[in-house]
Design a protein around this nucleic acid. Structure first.
Lengths: 243, 243
DNA sequence: AGATTTCTGAAACAATACGATACAAACAAG
DNA sequence: CTTGTTTGTATCGTATTGTTTCAGAAATCT
């Protein structure tokens, strides 16, 4: 745990890191706000779970410091809620004796924890450690490739297609792969050979295209997204945006 | 509730891990000796820097717990000494107020630290975390980690899965291994060959997947976490964070 | 233009892969 | 040894995919 460069960590990424402190005690909240702010972080504050959700919706929070004892929602259940890869890492604050054992026993998904009363400097050190540990991971897992075209959203990480109205369009595995291939190179004329996966007849591509058209084309008889290039193959003519 | 977690960590590697406690206070020394011993570690004791060197020469120490205040050599300088060599990881014990700030400021190569007075259970947790983090052999460093995805927490050290509501989802051994494999490479398309353990039929992977889906999918008929890639295998499509 | 050839779209059918139930074997606990 | 749990196998129904086939569209030829 070598953090000689805590300040650097906080401000290295051009824009500073956001820390969200969820704590109902007024004194601790203002103390942490000042202390973390002085040490190069942007600080957002929340008094309870509800406020936390509000902040999370507005601010790109990099790390949450969460007190166990909150007025409305229990810190534990908040922890459970946050337990998915998309949410920021979490440091729990806990009063000595109380739920400490529960935290330590059940690992509930917090990335670290601190027993109150604590030295602000210690929190700073742990924040640095957690950010360092989770930073590269966040970046790599954030690399999801999704494609949007004419109201559709094709998400290759979840292998799902959402239609213009938001409803899911259920594609079979082969249909999905075909659409993904087309999406990755819009405008390119694909030969049937390029579109067929295994040792199948070239004609099987045709019927796959046909089935896909049934699902995504407004009028499958007069396709606008997937065009046929006679004696050549097919091409995807929609404007695709990579997300 | 004792700690099945750390017991398993300590004794999982066939031979138990050695912890060296360097501490001049007789009470704390015997307390830690008993407590760590009870929790599956081999414990070596030292009163000062000199004794520590003796022990290190004789015992394959896996981790050192080092008090800052020692009679002969200052804990800081010991820490410096240990830092350059291929020495075991280090957890510092420090009295509140005293040099705490100095430790935290100058990070001198300790892997973690604990402010006295502390709960033995907490030391145990931090020992487990440090061992996990610094485990040199690929096997244990790969194996001992927790993964969180869409509300679940998969803890490979306790081999337990906690659901979004915090309740434990009971997985069989094979189910757990399967989920762990998938978790370690989310997005990768695993062939049945990669997922099957022994000389079993490829179809047995299917039924295992099916059983796992029953337990973790919201709607097993329309899975969102484990996707089937027809004629290829399966892929884990949730975003996973390693903790 | 009309006839002919070539190509594509899609319906009908066949083959295959997968999901899940029921049952049997292996394993562990008492 | 008995009992219960876990894991593998057999099987069936369903969903997906490939093949055949034919009708119609598009290009080519006379």
């Amino acid at each position: 745990m070598n953090s000689p460069t805590l300040n650097e960590i906080a401000s290295s990424a051009a824009d500073r890191r956001w820390i969200l402190v969820v704590e109902d005690d007024e004194d601790i909240r203002s103390l942490l706000s000042k202390y973390l702010g002085d040490n190069g972080f942007e600080v957002a504050l929340a008094r309870d779970g509800k406020q936390m959700d509000d902040v999370l919706a507005r601010v790109p929070v990099d790390l949450i410091v969460l007190d166990i004892n909150l007025p409305d929602e229990d810190g534990f259940s908040i922890c459970m809620r946050l337990r998915n890869a998309a949410s920021p890492p979490l440091i729990m604050l806990t009063a000595r004796g109380e739920d400490t054992d529960r935290i330590l026993g059940i690992e509930l998904g917090a990335d670290d924890y601190l027993v109150k009363p604590f030295i602000p400097r210690e929190l700073l050190a742990r924040i640095g450690a957690v950010l360092r540990r989770t930073a590269p991971d966040i970046e790599s897992s954030q690399k999801t490739s999704a494609y949007s075209f004419s109201g559709f959203l094709l998400d290759s990480s979840t292998r799902r297609l959402l239609g213009p109205t938001g409803v899911r369009v259920i594609l079979t595995s082969a249909e999905f792969d075909l659409l993904l291939t087309l999406c990755r190179d819009p405008g390119k004329v694909f030969s049937r050979d390029e579109l067929k996966v295994a040792s199948t007849t070239e004609r099987s591509v045709d019927i796959l295209i046909s089935r896909l058209r049934q699902k995504i084309e407004d009028d499958p008889r007069d396709p606008t997204l997937i065009q046929t290039i006679r004696s050549m193959g097919y091409t995807f003519t929609a404007k695709v945006r990579v997300q």
